[in-house]
Simulated assay, not measured.
Amino acid sequence: MPVWAWLLGAVGLEVVGTTALQQSAQFTRILPTAVMVACYGLSFYALSVVVQSMPVGVMYAIWSGAGIALISLIGWLFLNQRLDAAALLGIGLIAAGVIVINLFSGANPH
């Protein structure tokens, strides 16, 4: 499987895991807690595959940046969480950084 598929899978699993973390009510609800643990574990396994082909800094920047943006969107759309202008600007800068890495970095396998 291509390295990008592993990285996208890791991002998706991290987003599901973080959403389940919020739903776990401080680990008092067993199903969301189990989903969170499983998703984080599988996400880190996928990252261990990715890091064999991509520098760890680039991999982590893409994984965490994409996760931040997606979790913020989920919070806004489904959890009625609001972000102020500074938070939106910061998320936009993170997204811009991920785009720059993907388009222009020689350290990134294309």
Rank of each mutant, 00 (worst) to 15 (best):
A10M: 04
V11C: 03
V11Q: 01
V11N: 02
G12Y: 11
G12M: 13
L13F: 13
L13Q: 05
L13H: 00
E14P: 08
V15D: 12
V15F: 14
V16H: 07
V16K: 10
V16N: 13
V16W: 06
G17E: 08
T18P: 12
T19F: 10
T19K: 01
A20C: 04
A20T: 01
A20R: 00
A20F: 00
Q22P: 01
Q23E: 14
S24L: 12
S24Y: 09
S24Q: 11
A25F: 11
Q26F: 09
F27L: 05
F27C: 03
F27K: 02
F27M: 00
T28I: 01
T28V: 04
T28M: 01
R29A: 00
I30S: 01
I30P: 05
I30H: 11
L31C: 06
L31T: 05
L31E: 05
L31R: 07
L31H: 03
L31I: 10
P32T: 06
T33K: 01
T33E: 01
T33S: 06
V35H: 00
V35F: 00
V37M: 11
V37D: 00
A38W: 04
A38T: 11
Y40I: 06
G41C: 15
G41V: 15
G41R: 08
G41F: 13
G41M: 14
G41D: 14
L42Y: 04
L42M: 08
L42V: 03
S43N: 00
S43D: 01
F44I: 15
F44V: 15
Y45G: 15
Y45T: 15
Y45F: 14
Y45V: 15
A46G: 14
A46K: 04
A46N: 13
L47D: 04
L47P: 14
S48F: 15
S48N: 10
S48T: 05
S48L: 13
V49H: 15
V50E: 07
V50D: 04
V51G: 10
V51M: 09
V51C: 12
Q52F: 12
M54I: 02
P55K: 13
P55Y: 09
P55Q: 10
P55W: 08
G57I: 08
V58P: 06
V58C: 12
V58K: 10
V58D: 04
M59Y: 09
M59W: 14
Y60Q: 13
Y60P: 09
I62E: 03
I62K: 06
I62N: 10
I62P: 03
I62A: 12
I62G: 11
W63R: 10
W63N: 08
W63K: 14
S64F: 07
S64L: 12
S64Q: 09
G65S: 04
G65W: 02
G65L: 13
G65R: 09
A66C: 10
G67I: 06
G67E: 02
G67T: 13
G67W: 08
I68D: 07
I68Q: 05
A69D: 08
A69L: 07
L70V: 08
L70C: 10
I71K: 05
S72I: 03
S72P: 03
S72M: 05
S72K: 02
L73S: 05
I74Y: 05
I74T: 03
G75Y: 02
G75E: 00
G75V: 06
W76C: 04
W76K: 07
W76P: 05
W76F: 12
W76Y: 07
F78I: 11
F78K: 09
F78P: 07
F78H: 13
L79R: 12
L79A: 11
N80S: 03
N80E: 04
N80L: 02
R82P: 04
L83F: 11
